[in-house]
Design a protein around this nucleic acid. Structure first.
Lengths: 132, 132
DNA sequence: CTTATTAATGTTATATTATTACACAATGTT
DNA sequence: AACATTGTGTAATAATATAACATTAATAAG
């Protein structure tokens, strides 16, 4: 039985906006853009973001302090995320590669510890930027 | 020819402290602890941190906004980092696993893009915390 | 060795990101 | 209805990080 079918008002407003922009966006930028919808304070945004991250609807790009809509239906369960980030134009894409995620999900460290979650961020130059 | 054999005064002070504590530590905590050495302002710490990250002497744990000394001599070249993070006690260890790093260094996304850098953070419970 | 260039420092102020604390309202359960 | 859980609203503040500017130290080039 999957939980949390319905989002609250603020969660839905924030998610709608993040899905609309379709690229990583920062919390205070979200705030500015949803003020017309009645959200007034940072905390209202951060609370919505926390919940949306928790249920896998969005991800946080940790190295950029930015949030992006999830493109990968399986994230809601696995919390296993991978991104490519262009260091020139800051374009970010979510990587969904079965082989990679399989490999990382089953990874054990030298003490045999397994992990229930990971976040991987790759850095380089995207196609456009590498020909400039 | 390897560059940057010698660190500047502030860089050395900050690195010494980070190596001494031997666990992830935050910028303002570093600041408090090196004030007796004459470092007075956040920017002095951040500038040293930037340089130390750049030359691979320390790494930033992005999900925690914290910095830790590098345990892995090859990082200075590769900028390829992996950590395990205990979500209970916040213990962080740098993973050095040849197979993993080889796999990730050669990883290409679906467009064939290769990456010169990555950061991977695994989350779970460490040995101590998992038996509690 | 002196001039040019680059890297580092010192300092103040400020920007950006995120949380605490508290009162209250809506929703779901028993 | 009573209770627990989750979400909201608001103000204040904490924590993290950078901009701008003046100066000094280190390096390298002539």
């Amino acid at each position: 039985m999957l939980k949390q079918e319905t989002l609250s008002k603020n969660q839905q407003i924030v998610l709608d906006y993040i899905e609309k922009v379709n690229e990583p966006i920062k919390a205070y930028s979200i705030l500015h853009n949803v003020q017309k919808k009645g959200i007034k304070a940072p905390l209202q945004v951060y609370r919505a973001l926390d919940k949306l991250v928790e249920i896998g609807k969005i991800h946080k790009i940790e190295s950029r302090n930015a949030f992006v809509a999830c493109k990968n239906s399986s994230c809601q369960l696995s919390k296993a995320t991978a991104f490519s980030i262009c260091e020139s134009c800051e374009e970010v894409s979510e990587i969904s590669d079965n082989k990679l995620s399989k490999y990382l999900k089953s990874f054990q460290d030298k003490a045999g510890m397994k992990f229930k979650k990971y976040n991987l961020e790759f850095f380089g130059l995207c196609k456009k930027c590498s020909i400039k």
